[in-house]
Amino acid sequence: MDSKLSKEELMSLINSLNPKIKKSLKNTNYQDRNDLEQEIKLKIIESYEKIAAIEAPNFEEFLVEFLTKQKQ
């Protein structure tokens, strides 16, 4: 199974997160905002490997984990 993110998907994900990025620009000065926007996008693309390495459990694994946690 290929649950990994393709690079195209990553780009579309960045685009969909654009409002969030814009909001975070308010954390810095007017003069630095364009820089920050670029740096954030760069940072996300740089951490592609990390993002691709994120692992998620499947349904059964999640269910078993949840049930054992609940028993404790």
């Binding site: 997160l17 969030k20 990025i21 810095t28 630095d32 820089d35």
Partner: peptide, 13 residues
């Protein structure tokens, strides 16, 4: 990614 954006912007500033 959401946390990355937030913390990176704070750090950047």
């Amino acid at each position: 990614m959401c946390s990355l954006i937030y913390f990176f912007s704070v750090d950047f500033d």
